[in-house]
Structure formats: C-alpha cells, structure tokens
Nucleic acid binder design. Sequence first.
DNA 1: TAGATTGTTAATCGATTAACAATC
DNA 2: TAGATTGTTAATCGATTAACAATC
Lengths: 220, 220
Amino acid sequence: MVKHKQIQWVSSRTVERLALYRRAILRKSPDWGTSIFSHQLANLCGVTAAQVRRDLMAVGYTGSPITGYELSQLLESIGLFLDSAEATPVAIVGVGDLGRAVIHFLANRRPKLVVTAAFDADPSKTDRVIHGVRCHRMERLTQVLTDQAIEIAIVAVPASEAQIVCDRLVEAKVRGILSFAPAFLRVPDHVVVERLDVTVALEKVAFLARSPNVPRKKST
Amino acid sequence: MVKHKQIQWVSSRTVERLALYRRAILRKSPDWGTSIFSHQLANLCGVTAAQVRRDLMAVGYTGSPITGYELSQLLESIGLFLDSAEATPVAIVGVGDLGRAVIHFLANRRPKLVVTAAFDADPSKTDRVIHGVRCHRMERLTQVLTDQAIEIAIVAVPASEAQIVCDRLVEAKVRGILSFAPAFLRVPDHVVVERLDVTVALEKVAFLARSPNVPRKKST
DNA sequence: TAGATTGTTAATCGATTAACAATC
DNA sequence: TAGATTGTTAATCGATTAACAATC
C-alpha cells in the first residue's frame, strides 16, 4: 500500500504529464532497476526534474532522497490518482477511417479505458462489430449510453455534424468528450471537451518550422 | 492588397487560434455578411473577444470600429501570415489504420499542406498508392524527401519505432514533425515536434470529467 | 558522516484579461 | 454627434523555474 496525502489541486498540464510518465515507465521499465530519480524520468519525457518532482508531489507519492521513486509504487500511485476504481466505458461516434483507427489504436491499450460502443449515421456501417466493438445506429445512442452507464465519448464525425452529435451526447449525460472534429463545440459548464485537431496541429508545425524567430516551447 | 505591419512576436497559442479562426470563417461564412466583429468570432471559437483582437493584431490586419473585420481581407491576412508562399509538401511515415486515416483526413483539405509521400516498413503496403499518395519503402526515405524538398513529416508508427523514424527524418533535413506516437521524441533544437497523443488526451478527459474540483480551463 | 536527491517555498516568467483612449 | 468597437497598454493570473533546508 502506498502513502497518500490529501490533494487539493492539480493543473490539467500535470494530469497530462502524469499520463506521460506512466507511459514512459511502462514502456521502458524492464531495462531498469526497481527505482528511478526525478531527473531520469524528466529526461525520458522531455520535462524538467523540478516539474517531475512537483507533479509526483501532487499524486501524493513520496520518494526517497537516496533511492528516488520506487517504480511499482509510483505506477500504483499514478494509477490511483488518474484512473477511476473500475474500468471506464467509452463510446465513439463516427466509424469512418479515423474512428476505426482510434478504436484499433485504443484496443487493449489501457485496461481502465475501454471502448464499449460505437455509433454511426451510415446504416451500412451499423449493426455489426468493428475491431471488437459493436456499432449501433445513431437512434440508439441515448439508450445504449444509459444502459452501459457511459460518460465519456469520442467524436470522430465531420465538423458539420460535430455540434449536433455533441448536443445529443450531452443530453445522454456524457460528461467528457474527446473530439477530432475541426470545430469548436459548445457544451454546458459541467462537460469537459478536449479537441485533437490534426489540421490545426499540422498547420502549427509547418508555421513553427518555417519561422525560426518564433520562440520555441520545449518540444513536448 | 491588405495593410501589413512588421510583426515581432507571436505565441504558439496564437498560431493555433489563428488556424481555428480561419477554419470557423471558412465553414460559416456563406451565412454571414462581408464582415465580422471580434466578439462574434470569439463566440464561434470559444475564446474571448480581447484574445481575438490581440491575435488579429499580431497578424497585422487592422479592422474598423464600425464594420469590424472584413472577412475576405481577414482570410487573406491570416493566409499570408500562417501559410508559406508555395504549397508545402508533407511526408507521412506509417500507413497503418491511423496513417491511412490521416492521409484521407488531410486530402483536399488545405491546399497549402499536401501529403505527397508515404512510407512504411511493411513491404505489403509499399510501392502502391494509398488515398492518392504513393507509398514508398523505408529505404527510400532520404532519397524521396530530398527529391521532393520535404521538410514537414507526420509520424504514425508504433511508439517503439518512433524515435528511430524520427532520427532518420531529422537526418533527411526535416524541420517539423507531427507525431501520433505515445512517446517523447528527442530532436535537435532546430526541429519542431508536436505530439497528438490519443491515449493521453482520453485519460485526461476521463480524469477531468470525474474530478469536478479540478479547475476547468475554457473548453477549447 | 558526506552527498545527492527530495519536498516545498519564493522568484520568475509568460500569457490572459481588463481597461481605456482613439476611431470611424 | 453619439456609441460601439478597435488597437494597445497596464494589471492580473497561473504555471514554471530556481533555490534551499530537510532527508535518507
């Protein structure tokens, strides 16, 4: 069992970095011993050692000045902090190229986040199983989400339909949305939206690569 | 021809938002008149009016207190600022599910950013055309990138191979990389890396949706 | 012990917001 | 003109970095 303090506050950047630390540890750990220092983890993830120490402090796991952070306990602590107790079911709307890729990408990756239902407006794609996930007709959205108690959804539909889909998800009591649509989604305050916009990201890269006078952020 | 000031500095956030403004304008403009006010654009993109004004100031296009910003001139200004003069060729490495989806997603979307070459280690995928893009063997990477003067690349390979691919891209004189691999990429200072990590983003959404005590950022 | 690393506070930095005179 | 909106500066906010006593 790991030590645990009361946590008051974390920034959303810290949440992101914690997920990154875990990823790095899970991928590399066979090569290492049983513990790691802040500067080693920092190096692996492209952040500063001070940042690692502060982030891990937020998680509430305390390292040792001599051995650093014990890997298995660190993973357990990050897990306790980031994950919910039970596996979280996730829905995905839109099983075009991108939707299917995301289903495939997420399959068997994180045991705590499982895509359990897919939806599409195109009847030729529905009522079948794609990469192990049942694809339903859009009409069944509210029903299926309620039945499976799904509160997290991924939106992979064209920008023109994103807001409509988003509204229906919110209506069906979804509280977190990850959207690939290149569109701003209007949601009530209690709903979290995270946008991953491929085109914007690519335009940004192209611009920054071309403009050496723009100050570079650390490449995280 | 639009007015243009000397621009000293923009933050990378501003670059992102400018891309977003352009997207919003392009999608909605038929519905509107010929001009738009800062607060209208702000509403569409989920940012503040002050932010819009400051961002557009960086672009160097000056609006009018009476009519606001003239749409066609605004688009021209953002284009002049964000895009390079000629179309920018882009390479993509890894044509698995995700890679193909990205190729498809980007096809015909931005005339200034065109995927012109794809690469994969799997011989069954190479030497053919995918969504209109020729897919080459990895051995030809440097050759093709040099021939086509490609300086921007998308990495859509598994995390375990991302660093190796990245090193080869840097060697081939690539200056901007958009990576989908859930891994930190070590690059020289002159190379820009932008990471779009689906798993991290989803973990973040799940966490934030579950933790109402974490202060919410604006949902952009 | 001596020394590297930790948790934690104070100083710095950068970006956002608020405010307002200038403008059409 | 009167008034809403602009460009631009000053104030605020939050996150990162630096520093250092505490620790094993």
